[in-house]
Amino acid sequence: MTTTGMITGTTTAPAAGPARTSAGMTESERTGAHTDEAASLIAGARDRIDALDDRIIGLVQERMAVSAVIQDARIASGGRRVNLSREMEVLAHFRAALGKPGTSLAMTVLELCRGRV
């Protein structure tokens, strides 16, 4: 592809520019970095985060399955689906490990595992 200069009438080839990703963005644009070195570091760290997120999702799904077994056993024995004292223990555990945001995370995990009460 070439461009024609409007004033001089010359024809020039477009600049090659930085390599672009499949989404049409440079690695620096995609990562928000200002240097290639930082962009590379960020891209690698994001790959690691994506892998960690996949593991977290797998663990939550495993927790959901174990929770379903517990709920089924509790209901089959004549108990309630949810044990509130146990949920308070889980909330306290997350809060102690992660601070106040841990409580929100625990609430989400509990909701995923038992459904809304």
Rank of each mutant, 00 (worst) to 15 (best):
45 A>V: 12
100 K>W: 11
16 A>T: 05
98 L>Y: 14
11 T>E: 08
98 L>K: 07
88 M>G: 12
108 T>I: 01
105 L>G: 01
7 I>K: 13
43 A>N: 11
66 V>Y: 13
1 M>W: 01
27 E>L: 09
50 D>I: 14
22 S>K: 07
90 V>P: 03
49 I>Y: 10
3 T>N: 12
10 T>L: 13
38 A>N: 08
25 M>Q: 11
107 M>C: 04
19 A>I: 02
2 T>N: 11
112 L>S: 14
83 N>H: 10
50 D>L: 12
8 T>P: 04
102 G>A: 03
63 R>Y: 14
48 R>K: 14
38 A>D: 13
19 A>C: 02
107 M>A: 03
36 D>G: 02
113 C>D: 03
14 P>L: 11
101 P>K: 01
106 A>I: 06
86 R>Q: 15
73 A>G: 09
94 F>D: 00
46 R>W: 09
67 S>C: 02
68 A>I: 02
39 A>Y: 00
117 V>W: 01
21 T>E: 05
85 S>D: 14
3 T>A: 13
56 I>D: 05
110 L>S: 00
63 R>I: 10
35 T>E: 08
77 S>D: 11
90 V>H: 06
61 Q>R: 14
51 A>F: 08
83 N>L: 10
56 I>G: 03
17 G>N: 03
45 A>K: 11
15 A>R: 10
88 M>E: 15
60 V>A: 15
99 G>Y: 06
108 T>E: 05
4 T>Y: 10
70 I>T: 05
70 I>F: 02
54 D>V: 14
16 A>L: 04
91 L>N: 08
30 R>D: 06
41 L>M: 13
96 A>M: 14
95 R>E: 07
65 A>R: 13
92 A>S: 15
35 T>G: 06
